[in-house]
Design a binder for these strands. Structure first.
Lengths: 220, 220
DNA sequence: GCAAATTAATGATTTATTCAAG
DNA sequence: CTTGAATAAATCATTAATTTGC
């Protein structure tokens, strides 16, 4: 059965839509992380594509009214499906975070589909989670760790005034590169469909979705 | 149902864990080493987290009461993963390219899962193709068109005024920012589950109304 | 104490770069 | 050289944490 869980793409246009805002996105604010204050006033302007769903102005994740969303040609009421489970973004539980960090520390960086599946399954014990969350988490964590480090490095540099040519911390790049140069070609993450086969156990809110598409078959 | 079609992957389970051998980032490399790190730890990373998150200084949310310090262990043993290597890369046929370009010209830029499905199915008539190919094609095409344009722009500029030794551009952000700041509410592609049931070359002749690709004129 | 207004974090997408097959 | 594939950086968007006025 395939549940064509339509990509959201267009959810409930309910959110206040912080539309424009300043966006200035300050070139660089060395002081601290970007403040980035999203003005959350009720401006509601967006007017999305408006091909469908003329949802109520306000209605977040509280499925109170059943708006018969009629996207494209799917008759399922997506509203229900969507609301109950993934309307909002993933919010990791402490346990999940702990595990993820442990894995990160152990060296995991860009898990492949299989790994993602496993991790997801494991973390699923502690709360709702999908493969993409795992993937994104690693992406973001990696990037932000790097960011953090870079920042501190810079700070240290400035403070000491004695710029170390080679900071003790030398980035994994070296290592990786070596690795690659050594033999194979780039590793390739591949977008597996990698679908978990979970049934509907319980209120199950697992909308299984992972990577964008499913790879068909080997070509060639 | 459930097509565990693992995408192409090619993992050589050889790499020794290299657990936490990360070093850090070299501040500046003239050559910009490429991090790139999918050679993931394929060692069994057993992580046991027996941490009872009893009461962190700042309780996150209503964590509920079902939190019984569970112990979790994730065993990642990727050694078995060795799927058939993904072979060669997609090589579009002229027909496919034609269609893709037509779609591009018609305004398609970042197709959502459903669109990708359709396009893939359609193009599948002319040769093997996977969803990711479609996705990548649009990504690349968009980027390269932009690149091209920028280049010509720059060239024009150079002709009129500055010598401009390096063709290296660095001001693309300007434009993009402007673009975003404009008005749009980002579209959001969402990773739909979008699962096709068709085995291989499923639909011989899907009449499928061609890519809607609505004139929605997304500002993109 | 509480609820709106801010701010800090961080999840989710998009764009820019880079690598390498053909 | 062209371009499919993949990752990193930048950015947008939402949520929790914190502050503020009552």
């Amino acid at each position: 059965m395939k549940v064509h869980t339509l990509g959201s793409w267009e959810q409930v246009p309910s959110s206040p839509s912080t539309s424009s805002s300043l966006s200035s996105s300050s070139a660089n604010n060395p002081k601290r992380l970007r403040p980035l204050a999203p003005r959350l006033t009720s401006a509601a302007v967006s007017t999305t594509v408006a091909t469908e769903i003329s949802a109520p102005p306000k209605l977040r994740k509280s499925l109170g009214s059943a708006m018969t969303a009629k996207c494209a040609s799917i008759d399922l009421d997506v509203s229900l499906i969507q609301m109950q489970s993934g309307g909002t973004r993933w919010n990791p539980t402490p346990e999940q975070i702990k595990l993820l960090e442990a894995l990160y520390q152990a060296g995991m960086r860009t898990p492949n589909p299989v790994q993602i599946e496993r991790v997801t399954a494991e973390l699923g014990q502690y709360g709702r989670i999908e493969g993409k969350n795992v993937f994104y988490w690693f992406q973001n964590h990696k990037a932000r760790e790097r960011q953090k480090q870079k920042r501190s490095e810079l700070l240290a540099n400035a403070a000491t005034a004695a710029p170390l040519p080679h900071p003790k911390v030398q980035s994994q790049k070296e290592e990786i590169k070596e690795f690659h140069g050594g033999s194979c070609k780039r590793k390739c993450r591949s977008w597996g469909s990698l679908e978990l086969d979970m049934e509907e156990e319980g209120p199950g809110d697992r909308t299984l979705e992972l990577f964008p598409l499913h790879p068909e078959r080997r070509q060639m």
